[in-house]
Simulated scan of single mutants.
Amino acid sequence: MNVLRKNFLGFVLALASAIVMVGANSAMAASAGDLDRNAKQALDTLYKAHPVAETLSQSAKGILVFPNIVKAGLVFGGSYGEGVLLKGSEVADYYNSITGSWGLQAGAQSYAYAVFLMTDEAVSYLEKTKGWEIGVGPTVVLVDEGLAKNLSTSSLKNDAYAFIFSQQGLMAGLSIEGTKISRINR
């Protein structure tokens, strides 16, 4: 019975790794020009769905945009995507987002996310660290439908606001996960 359990766990780990690697390879294939264009299109999509995001962009010191994150998991999971840091309308740098997770989870999905960095300190932290772990460093608030309706430039008090959008696929479960954002060379 113990051998069967180990074999099943090995199979699940191998399957989740294979799914994530296939998704990661397609996400990594974009050139700098493609990534720039995809990030700006993703922001346009976000602004249409959440006009408050466009309002935030006018005060943001930087916007970190990941136009395509691919996530998959079966007990063990992960996600990967590449994005850009925009300062004004110009691309300042390139980053990747890597997440690992463990728990009761199954499925695959893709999504986009944007983090509006509202202070010079938040931008500086991102640029100076060798990898920003979400939950460590500047305070990031995940903007959901309820918060988006009540958010205004006069109520901004946090370092960063994140929007998740353009979700496709199905991922279900309860898991523990961590995300790390790191600078990459393009």
Rank of each mutant, 00 (worst) to 15 (best):
A148V: 07
Y111P: 00
G173E: 05
V91E: 02
T99Q: 13
G173I: 10
I98S: 14
V123G: 00
Y111T: 00
L126Q: 08
T139Y: 10
M171D: 04
V143H: 06
G146F: 05
I63D: 04
S152I: 01
S155C: 00
E145A: 15
A92N: 12
K71C: 01
Q105D: 03
P51H: 04
T55S: 10
A160M: 08
A160H: 07
T129V: 13
I176T: 06
A162Q: 15
Q105L: 10
G131T: 08
L151F: 02
Y113K: 10
K87T: 15
F163N: 04
F116R: 09
A60H: 12
V52A: 03
P138I: 09
G81F: 02
A122Q: 05
G173V: 08
K71E: 15
A60N: 11
A72N: 00
N96L: 06
K128Q: 14
Y113W: 13
I63Q: 09
V52E: 07
T119K: 12
N150H: 09
E133V: 13
S89E: 14
A60E: 12
F76L: 13
T55Q: 10
N150L: 12
T139C: 03
A112G: 12
W102S: 08
A112V: 06
H50T: 06
V141R: 11
T55Y: 01
L142G: 03
W132G: 03
Y113H: 15
I63S: 09
Y125P: 04
L86H: 05
M171R: 12
V70R: 11
K71N: 11
G135C: 07
V91G: 03
V52N: 02
D159N: 14
D120H: 02
D120Q: 10
F165M: 03
M171H: 04
K157M: 08
N150P: 00
L174R: 01
P51W: 03
G88A: 07
P138H: 09
T153R: 11
S89Y: 00
A162C: 13
V91C: 00
I164M: 06
E127L: 13
P51R: 05
E90P: 00
K61S: 12
Q58P: 04
V75S: 07
F76G: 04
K128G: 06
K61I: 04
A114V: 06
G107R: 07
Y161D: 06
K149P: 03
K157F: 09
L64W: 04
V91P: 02
L174C: 01
V75T: 13
S97A: 13
E145H: 06
G100K: 11
Y111N: 12
V115I: 15
M118S: 09
D93C: 02
V141D: 01
T153G: 11
K149R: 14
A60C: 14
L86V: 05
W102Q: 01
Q105W: 03
Q109K: 15
L142E: 10
G78H: 09
V136C: 07
D120S: 13
V141P: 07
Y161L: 06
A162S: 14
S154R: 12
E82Q: 15
S57Y: 14
G178W: 01
G83Y: 09
G62H: 05
L126F: 04
A148R: 05
V141Q: 08
G88C: 07
S59N: 11
T139L: 12
F165K: 04
S166N: 15
F163E: 02
T153W: 00
S59I: 08
G131Q: 09
I134G: 02
A160K: 12
V140A: 02
